[in-house]
């Protein structure tokens, strides 16, 4: 998936530690329409496990994860 993903909301979660990155994504998921995308940038290595797990449990989807230096960028799609 090299094409650009249309982002509806961007969250800067750098510096936040568990459980905050996942909580912030969950608090904001209803701020995008169904099918919409949240781009969340975190630095907590735990979020690599937590955010996909949160998505599976809540029925949403992490469509792409990027890593650059310390930044971990998630593209989370709201499915319902």
């Amino acid at each position: 998936m090299a094409e650009n993903i249309k982002v509806d909301l961007e969250l800067d979660l750098r510096g936040l530690l568990c459980p905050l990155p996942m909580v912030r994504v969950s608090q904001n998921i209803t701020n995008v329409p169904i099918g919409g995308i949240i781009k969340a940038i975190a630095t907590d290595p735990g979020s690599l496990a937590d955010i996909p797990s949160w998505a599976r449990t809540t029925g949403n989807e992490v469509v792409k994860t990027e890593r650059a230096d310390k930044d971990i960028t998630f593209f989370v799609k709201r499915l319902k």
């Binding site: 568990c18 459980p19 996942m22 909580v23 969950s26 608090q27 949160w54 449990t57 809540t58």
Partner: peptide, 8 residues
């Protein structure tokens, strides 16, 4: 508690 609540 926070994690569970955030997970609906």
């Amino acid at each position: 508690a926070t994690g569970a609540a955030a997970t609906n």
